[in-house]
Design a protein around this nucleic acid. Sequence first.
DNA 1: GATCCTCTTGTTCCCGGTAACATTTCACGT
DNA 2: ACGTGAAATGTTACCGGGAACAAGAGGATC
Lengths: 340, 340
Amino acid sequence: MSTRSASDRPSMRQVAETAGVSHMTVSRVLNGHPSIKESTRDKVLHAVEQLGYHRNIAARALALQRTLRIGAVVETEAEFGPASALRAIHRAARRRGYSVSSVALDEDETGDPDRAFQQLLALGIDALCLVTPRSASVAAVRAASLDVPVLVVKPEREPELLRVCVDQQLGVTMAVDHLAALGHRDVLYVSGPMDWLDARARERAFRARAQSWGMRERPIVAGDWSADFGYDFAIGLERVPEYTAIVAANDEVALGIVHGLHDRGLRVPDDLSVVGFDDAPFSRHSIPPLTTVRQPFEALGAAVVDVLLAAVEGLEIPQRTKIPPELVVRLSTAKARTAP
Amino acid sequence: MSTRSASDRPSMRQVAETAGVSHMTVSRVLNGHPSIKESTRDKVLHAVEQLGYHRNIAARALALQRTLRIGAVVETEAEFGPASALRAIHRAARRRGYSVSSVALDEDETGDPDRAFQQLLALGIDALCLVTPRSASVAAVRAASLDVPVLVVKPEREPELLRVCVDQQLGVTMAVDHLAALGHRDVLYVSGPMDWLDARARERAFRARAQSWGMRERPIVAGDWSADFGYDFAIGLERVPEYTAIVAANDEVALGIVHGLHDRGLRVPDDLSVVGFDDAPFSRHSIPPLTTVRQPFEALGAAVVDVLLAAVEGLEIPQRTKIPPELVVRLSTAKARTAP
DNA sequence: GATCCTCTTGTTCCCGGTAACATTTCACGT
DNA sequence: ACGTGAAATGTTACCGGGAACAAGAGGATC
């Protein structure tokens, strides 16, 4: 099959001519307008088929005053979590006939959210979402007071903004419960950067659940999301014998921690259990394979797009917007060794 | 700063009115037309600034008969390599004022490249690139005979298509040389799927270089790109003592191999050295950290966009299109144990 | 001072869709 | 047969830019 060129792409008027109708009739058929005679619809669809016609998106956008484009701002695409969420949003949007333009704040952007918004607005977007934002980005999007619908992917409700999230509290709770069931009472929590709202929510959830199990209160360590951090942290960790388990901000940090402990001659899970977050592809085959909380990115992406497009199209906003993650138990967690 | 809504976004005519000129003068200023009086340009730019004006991309696309959009087809976004390449292309395109719409063949698409092309053409694209394609995709893009410029990211030249690639041969050569220098003569090569052109090129390069070092000829194993495959492979590998090193298709496979060997009680690098490909983020902190060939994705993305836009805009096509990777030596490789 | 050029700017139309309104067609009741 | 209203379809204008052509201004030439 040979595909035609941009230049000889047929227009709606040509389709109309082929079908022996006016271009408006073609437009109506393609938009599912109700009052079109069956026979006319067939003629038109046949002509469309015959010419291999596609509507011109740019012309449509111009006439509709809608771009059929969603903007997405993500803090970084380098981490597995945000990148996966973004990909899922892409896919879900495409299924709905929308495309997604994304900007990552950690690259050429000098991390200025406002510039990112400007960039996306210049492109023309019908809606905007912030994927697992830091608090500064949420503040910036409020200040910008865009008037396209704005959605944040973050744990707490956000007045006047749309919101969808993974149930971080549930994820952390499952992890803590798992450790508790294995007899751990001395658990160290290594958080992501505290200005990421996801990290903050997890940390709160950890504190609450650890407390309810009567675990010993431990200082929360805040790092970044990188394996390098995990490694350095593990290397520098003092009074290791006081702990029996570590819960890490994500799988990368967990991996780094395992590596660091290994380099100190400590073994996972014999000396310490380690739990990650995300279920990145490598987690299944790290040594030892990581127990982790798998995030439901596909469902998240679908929910984001559902909510956003409902808002754009003036429909009722779905309310089921907190998506449960799943605990994946592997070998990096085991029964707590008896108290030191 | 408050950003205006899609609805009250000013048009070029409003800017023109504010500046006291015609809309064409505004258009000329914005397009850098030479014959514009300095004072007029200033007036216009001032008005643009004052109104926070951005040109409407859709209207521009319609008038220019160009979409300022590049299509990208990638076999999968789930692997680190293709995903990184794609991200880099995105970034490079944005710097040039283009956006990228991508389709991954392994998801909702039933893997049919032709459908992916159709989807992208329906969106309207000025150029198309195939990122690290399988041979079937290249065949499909030829058959489709699109008449936008088409670029393939693959090792061999491709008559009539544009091409840019990472120098896979050099990468493999560096890896083999590294092993040879450590005294390895019995090296097993675990390839990616042979219908991926990158995998094929690496395999050929491996054969050639291994031979030139006088390494023993070994059957090439073809798998997929996953850690699961690497694990299963390692578990099932027979006559292990005959080998002193394994070169894997990518870091994930390498990770799985290390894991599998570990589960068999074999140690890396003491019993076997392992080399990966890509330098994925986890590779630095796996146990042991992986020796690997780092791919220059940023440069690759920039080159892809340079070539493609040169073609779109009718400029001279850059010829420097083979980008050298870099060997990263870590702990998964060591001196070969003396012959078994 | 008239002519011709070049520099600069303006006018008009078109790109390919959709909305709003106009018009034709047709079934039906009387 | 004719009026009537709904269904089906057509006509026109407009979305916001850019290309082509037109036109006014100012300078050089003779």
